[in-house]
Computed example of a mutant assay.
Amino acid sequence: MKKHGILNSDIARVLATLGHTDCIVIGDCGLPIPDHVERIDLALRIGTPSFFDVLDEVLKDMQVERAVFATEVLDRNEAVMARATAMAGNGIGIDYVSHDELKRLSHDARVVIRTGEATPYANVVLYAGVIF
């Protein structure tokens, strides 16, 4: 049995197989997931697990060079905007695109991790970096 890190076997598997610039999406419970993209559904009920709970654990385990958020967070979700700013302060490149464009980007994701989050625009595309 794993002792540390992400215990969810599907998430651990995906993170272990990412290469440089591969991407994953962490989304709220309403984000549409393309049929051809693997879905890891963690949603138990509204709010559980939260977007931030999942994002924090993934960031502990994944080398991220860039994150993409919807421009709508800038005036519609102050908490997500603050987290994006904090991530930038930790050396992660941050980009903003329209929510429609973020949904288009999800078509190229290796996986979409669905949370129970129910606040507007609590979604992010994370691009893998390298550890060397």
Results as ranks from 00 to 15, higher is better:
V68I: 14
L55S: 07
A88L: 04
R110V: 14
D75F: 10
E78F: 08
R83D: 12
L102K: 02
I46L: 11
E78R: 10
H107E: 13
A86I: 12
G47H: 05
E57L: 01
D53G: 03
R66T: 09
H99L: 15
L55A: 11
T71V: 13
E117N: 08
D95E: 15
A43N: 12
R45W: 08
M62V: 04
H99A: 14
L44W: 10
I46K: 13
D61V: 00
V97D: 12
E101K: 13
T71H: 09
G89H: 02
M62C: 05
V54F: 08
A118L: 01
V111T: 05
G93E: 13
R104T: 15
S98L: 04
R114Q: 11
D61T: 03
G93A: 14
K60C: 14
E57G: 00
D53Y: 00
A67P: 03
R76L: 15
F52W: 02
G47L: 04
R76C: 14
G89V: 05
G89L: 10
E117W: 06
V112L: 11
K103M: 15
D75P: 06
R110T: 13
E117P: 10
E57V: 05
V58T: 04
V68D: 00
L74D: 10
A43G: 11
M62A: 01
N77A: 13
A67R: 01
G116T: 09
G93Q: 11
V111I: 03
V111M: 00
D56T: 08
S98M: 08
T48P: 05
S98W: 01
V111F: 02
A118H: 04
L102R: 03
E101V: 15
T48H: 09
E57W: 01
H99S: 14
R66G: 02
K60E: 15
G93Y: 00
N90E: 15
M62Y: 04
R76T: 14
R83L: 07
V73C: 06
Y96N: 08
F51W: 06
I113Q: 01
R66I: 04
A118N: 08
F52L: 10
R110A: 13
I46P: 12
E117A: 11
G91I: 07
R110I: 14
V80D: 06
H99Y: 15
T85Y: 07
G89P: 04
G89T: 08
E57Q: 09
P49R: 06
V64W: 00
P49M: 06
D56K: 01
L105R: 03
G116S: 09
H107Y: 08
L59H: 02
E78C: 06
A109H: 03
V54P: 02
V64I: 11
V58P: 05
R114C: 08
A82M: 12
Q63I: 07
V80E: 04
D108A: 12
V112D: 03
S106K: 02
H107S: 11
F52V: 08
L55D: 07
L44I: 12
E78I: 09
M62K: 00
E57T: 02
Q63H: 03
V58F: 05
E65G: 07
E101F: 13
T115H: 07
A86H: 10
A67K: 04
E57D: 12
Q63K: 11
L74E: 13
T85H: 07
S50T: 13
D61W: 02
G47K: 03
R104V: 15
D61F: 00
G93L: 07
D61G: 03
R110L: 14
F69W: 07
R104Q: 15
